[in-house]
Design a binder for these strands. Structure first.
Length: 820
RNA sequence: GCCGAAGUGGCGGAAUGGCAGACGCGACAGUCUCAAAAACUGUUGGGGGGCAACUCCCGUGUCGGUUCGAGUCCGACCUUCGGCACCA
């Protein structure tokens, strides 16, 4: 009688043994080729739920697979530890963010260990520890020195009642403060930015990196490059020094059709351009637009409204006076914060003009246009009309001709505009890396010298329920000596966006203990770039774009010498429960611990990989996990249950059966290997299940030789090792083999042995399946008619008395007769 | 609203433009058992016909198109999901 498969016992046993032996400790001093397999580090939310496992377990399987393939694999783990929830915990429960975070780290470490991954814990990074955030601050200084950091104004969500800045997630639907219910407004603050826009063009380029097409598209759309022309309109307004205003347009060919100008409500010129008559209405409109989110403002569903400021500018091309309006669908952050209104040829402008009775002159004639009024905006190409000397040009040429003309006259120039905005990194919060800057009355803005880093977060901060940053009221923190003149200075009290911490953590894993630099050059050169980066698709744009920017900036500063951080990217889907995304508030969070305790980590790992394609994700379902559990039990029985060949089998039978078994085995190696490379774990596992089923079937028949049987069991165990590391290690030991299975080589398939001898050829008539025939692989088209005479009687019935118009033969697949 | 995806049996899913439903769950039947559970074996898209071996028709969100052939490609629509710059 064989022992029962007891996951608890063997998983504990092997995790301890691997740890003791340092089996997964990684060194750069290694002759094997390197492979850096990175999983996005988790946020320290408290508990590891099944969604974390979904990110971690399959990537560990792939990393183990690369390891068996002979790579020196770095597969590290760490914690993204700064952020808002820690501060909320402090306010709500009176726990200091550091304590709360480190307790979570401790718990999550324990849970992460239960996965049975190859993490080398000596390389762990925790982004909220001074030895880490010292370097986050240091990178800020480097970017500042390189001219990539600057101060500017940006709006924040402001609760007038709490007198505090709110994160978007703290603003309830409809724009109310989650704490007190007051209507939230947007208010401008001086904050720090990184010039990511300087890299906009380079970030559009994905040459040489293997990223999913959809992520590339999303990033390109996010950057939103558009080529156009900046056109200046003259302004002649008493008491206003600006003599022109500029707008960006991709349709300069429509400039003769401008009948109004629209400014963003927050545009700096608005207050001076507003006439006394319009003042009350304009102010009310500005007030109203401060209460709307950008999504609400840009919704094409929302009615386009606006207010006339009472002032005019002049269209230089035709000398016409153009009324200046404000409207919330124009954003200050895009282009110049002002747009020209061409109602005949832009949908939004058309609706706007209709609503306010503004003229809609046609300047691009649609084909066959007879001078009638337009029913809707005509945005396609056409012929220029009512456009002076440009009449008669097709719109494409019109764009060029008018742009040339404007440039000659000095009234405009061709430019490129981006939707991408500079990266706002200031946060008015405590729990983040301090921005290492001092404001001095005499010297202005002064960076803290490198030698004085890190600027430490004061431990005795006071967390008030208002949510105001405790740093602002911490006198010892705020008041400091100016590093330049030694006089009194005040520290910057904003901290950095946590995306800053996650833009370089992958560099730190290569040399986590380096204390005179953020990383060791030799080690960066050895490990970087990351060969495979995996994580949730929710990071498709922001984190991944910021990290790419960060590396390009470091490259230009001279700190690294590669262009892209992540050579290959893969986004896994999300695990849902009860048809919904897991979340604490919904109370549907699935914790892996109980399943690990009951069924074992190997079963949970395999189940997560089997339930759906990894990039898709799916629903956690208690009842189907038993299938995986049963399967691993069957493998246990199969591997340890011994094998008795059937004594009645002739040598001929045995060699035929051996050949078939070896074909199946080599086809399985091929399928599993190829699926592993493509991270298609669900089909990888079904290939292994089919192989298991085959072995189960032939075991009772006893037709194969003992040697062939044992070879097949070995192959099965090797192929399963990355997925079920504990189970296979135990089987390997019990089969009397040398520790450790995880140091074994990944099996290679032999194309000859894997080759099929016979295949099923489909016979179709007019594309409908009529029969299947078994034919040798080597079959040529000439031999077909004879075979069909002999075998395919069913198909022949459909061909009876019909004229064959065409015959489509796809070798190895099908033959299709087109008749009648 | 905008950008990006996804829709296939009772359920999760499989399928280089070429046998739709691999593999697994569930269900049903059987073996074992006093019985049940577990385990194992078999059947299992829907509908029609046949005593039967079997056989025919329909079927991949909806509508249309391309093709000898469409789950797969193209167009329109519907539904669900991810992101939208201070959740990470």
């Amino acid at each position: 009688m064989i022992d029962r498969y007891d996951p608890q016992e063997i998983e504990k046993k092997w995790q301890q043994r691997w740890e003791k032996d340092g089996l997964y400790q990684v060194s750069e001093d290694d002759t094997r080729p390197k492979y850096y397999a990175l999983t996005m580090f988790p946020y320290t939310s408290g508990d590891l739920h099944i969604g974390h496992w979904y990110a971690m377990a399959p990537s560990d399987v792939h990393a183990r697979f690369k390891r068996m393939q002979g790579y020196n694999v770095l597969h590290p783990m760490g914690f993204d530890a700064f952020g808002l929830p820690a501060e909320n915990a402090a306010i709500q429960r009176g726990i200091h963010p550091f304590i709360w975070t480190m307790q979570n780290v401790q718990n999550m470490r324990r849970q992460l260990r239960s996965i049975g991954a190859i993490y080398d814990w000596s390389r762990e990074v925790v982004s909220c520890l001074p030895e880490y955030y010292k370097w986050t601050e240091w990178f800020f200084l480097k970017l500042y020195e390189a001219g990539l950091a600057y101060r500017g104004k940006a709006p924040v969500n402001w609760c007038p009642q709490c007198q505090t800045v709110l994160a978007n997630e703290q603003v309830l639907g409809g724009g109310f403060c989650e704490r007190c219910g007051t209507a939230v407004i947007r208010r401008d603050l001086e904050q720090w930015f990184f010039r990511i826009t300087r890299y906009a063009d380079e970030l559009m380029n994905f040459d040489g990196i293997d990223w999913p097409e959809r992520i590339q598209i999303m990033q390109r759309n996010w950057i939103g490059r558009s080529e156009g022309t900046e056109i200046s309109f003259t302004l002649d307004h008493p008491g206003v020094p600006e003599k022109e205003i500029r707008v960006f347009t991709t349709r300069p060919d429509t400039t003769f059709g401008v009948t109004f100008m629209v400014f963003a409500p927050e545009h700096p010129l608005v207050s001076v351009l507003t006439t006394p008559d319009s003042r009350a209405e304009v102010d009310a409109y500005i007030e109203k637009s401060r209460r709307l989110s950008e999504i609400e403002r840009l919704s094409t569903e929302k009615e386009k409204d606006g207010v006339f400021t009472g002032s005019y500018c002049t269209n230089r091309l035709n000398g016409k006076k153009v009324p200046i309006w404000i409207a919330d669908y124009v954003l200050l952050s895009y282009g110049t914060g002002a747009v020209m209104g061409v109602p005949a040829h832009d949908e939004r402008d058309f609706l706007f003009a209709k609503k306010y009775g503004i003229p809609i002159p046609v300047v691009i004639a649609p084909p066959g246009w007879q001078g009638e009024e337009l029913e809707e905006a005509y945005i396609e190409e056409g012929t220029l009309v009512n456009s002076g000397q440009f009449d008669g040009l097709p719109s494409k040429q019109g764009i060029e001709a008018i742009s040339d003309f404007l440039e000659e006259k000095g009234w405009g120039k061709r430019t490129v505009s981006y939707r991408l905005r500079d990266w706002l990194i200031s946060r008015q919060r405590y729990w983040g890396a301090p921005i290492p800057m001092v404001y001095c009355d005499k010297c202005g803005i002064v960076p803290i010298p490198e030698a004085d880093l890190p600027v430490l977060l004061p431990e005795d901060a006071e967390f008030r329920p208002t949510g105001e940053s405790p740093l602002k009221y911490h006198e010892q923190f705020v008041n400091t000596a100016c590093p330049r003149c030694g006089g009194p200075g005040k520290r910057e009290t904003d901290t950095m966006d946590t995306f800053m911490c996650s833009s370089w953590y992958f560099l730190r894993y290569t040399s986590p203990n380096s204390d005179d630099a953020p990383f060791d050059d030799d080690k960066i050169n050895y490990w970087m770039p990351v060969d495979l980066y995996t994580g949730g698709a929710e990071h498709a744009v922001m984190h991944l774009l910021y990290s790419r920017f960060f590396i390009k900036a470091l490259r230009d500063i001279g700190l690294v010498d590669f262009d892209e951080p992540f050579t290959r990217l893969f986004n896994q889907g999300i695990i849902i429960a009860e048809k919904q995304k897991m979340s604490k508030s919904r109370g549907n969070v699935i914790t892996p611990d109980e399943y690990v305790a009951e069924l074992g980590a190997d079963t949970v790992r395999a189940y997560l990989m089997f339930l759906a394609p990894w990039e898709q994700g799916g629903e956690w379902n208690d009842s189907s996990i038993s299938g995986i559990s049963r399967w691993l039990n069957r493998i246990w029985q199969l591997a340890l249950g011994g094998y008795q060949p059937n004594e009645k089998a002739t040598p001929g039978d045995t060699s035929k059966a051996d050949r078939e078994l070896s074909r199946f085995a080599h086809q399985t190696i091929r399928r599993v290997t190829q699926d592993m490379e493509k991270l298609r774990f669900n089909t990888m596992l079904s290939a292994l299940m089919e192989f298991t089923n085959y072995l189960t079937k032939i075991k009772d028949v006893g037709s194969v030789s003992t040697r062939a049987w044992q070879e097949s069991i070995d192959i099965l165990i090797w192929l399963l090792a990355p997925t079920a590391p504990h189970l296979t290690e135990e089987l390997w030991e019990r089969m009397g083999c040398q520790y450790s299975i995880h140091n074994q080589s990944w099996p290679k398939w032999d194309e000859e042995l894997a080759k099929d001898e016979e295949i099923t050829l489909v016979v179709q008539v007019n594309g409908k399946l009529r029969d299947r025939i078994t034919v040798p692989v080597s079959l040529t088209e000439d031999e077909l008619p004879r075979l069909l005479q002999e075998q395919a009687t069913k198909a022949n019935a459909y061909l009876e008395g019909k004229k064959i118009l065409k015959r489509v033969y796809v070798p190895g697949r099908l033959i299709n007769f087109v008749v009648q």
